[in-house]
Amino acid sequence: MRRVYQEKTTLVTACLLASTIAAAPAAAQERVEVGSAASVAGDVTLDNDQLRRPVDVERGRRIAWGDLIRTKKNSQMQILLLDRSNFGIGQRSRVRIDRYVYNPNEGRSLIGSLIKGALRFFSGSEEGENTAEVSTPAGRIGIRGTAVDMLVGEKAEDIAEDEDFVGSVRSDDDEATFVVLRGPGPGALSGLTPGLAEVTGADVTVILDEPGLAAYIPRKGAAPIGPFRISNSGLARVQDQISPRWARSFGDGGIPDEVLIGTAAAGILGVLLGTRGDGDDGDQTSSDNSNNTATGRSDRTCEDANGNRIPCPPIR
C-alpha cells in the first residue's frame, strides 16, 4: 500500500511541477492566486514572503500560494478555492496553501499545511482527477472527495486522549495530529462519491473510509492510532475548534448532556474497529511494520514491500 501511495504521491508531485513550470509567472515574485477569503470573523491575518508584516484579512481578499493564514482565539475564516473546495480554518490556527493547480477540464491538485489549530476541508467539483494532501508536523493526510476535520496541537492531544480508544500516550502538544472523516458516506444523497482520508505517520497509513472514523498521530515519528469511531463529545469538541463562533453562540458554555451520553457507546464501537495504541506504541518506525495499512474494517489486508496482500499484523 505504501508503495502505491508513494508512486501516487510522486506522480502528483511530478504533475504539480509540470503544471508549475507551464504556469510559471513572468516574475518569480508574482502571486499565484488560487481563491478568496469567503468569510472572516475575529482576528485573522495573512503573511508571506512579499509582506513586511502580516496584514488583516478581509472578506474577498485573494489568497495565493505561500500565504500563511493565522487566526486567534474565537476567530475563524473560510477560503473558497477556484474549484469550490473549501478550507474552513478554526481558531488559534496557522494554515498555508503550498501548491494549488486547477484545470476545470482536468481537475485539481492541492497541497497545504496545517501547522497548528483546526481545519475543515470540503472538496468541491468532482469533475476530473482531484487530489489533495495536507501536511502536519506529525504526518500527512491524503484526501479524496470528502469532508474531513483536522486538528494539530494541544487541542488535538486533549481531545484524542479523552477517547477511550487512544487513552494516555506520549504526545507532543505542538505536533499531535487528530483527523476525523465527516463524509460523504456510502449512503449520502445525490450520488456523491464516498469520501476517504489516508492518514500517514512514520510510513504507516491508516485509512478512514466511513464518516465518524478518526485517527491520531501523537507526535512526529509515531504511527497513527486508529481507525476508531470518535465519541459524540469528542466530535462536538472538534466542531467547537473549527467553528468557535457557532459554538459560543449557544451561550451554554459547554456540550449538552445529551451529547455526552453517547460517548460510552461510541467508545465501545471504537474497540471493535481497527488498531489501537497503548502507552508508548506510537513509535512504529521499524522496518518490520513500516508498510502496514490499517483500515476501518476487519476484513481488510495490508501489503508487504512488494505490494503483495498479507494479513494486517497487530500494532502493539
Binding site: 469532508a147 465527516r182 463524509g183 460523504p184 458516506g185 456510502p186 449512503g187 449520502a188 444523497l189 456523491l192 464516498p194 464518516p211 465518524g212 470518535i230 459524540n232 466530535l235 462536538a236 466542531q239 451529547v259 453517547g262 461510541a266
Partner: peptide, 9 residues
C-alpha cells in the same frame, strides 16, 4: 451526507 452522528450532535 451520511454523517448522522455529526447531525445528531
Amino acid at each position: 451526507i451520511d454523517d448522522p452522528q455529526g447531525g445528531l450532535v
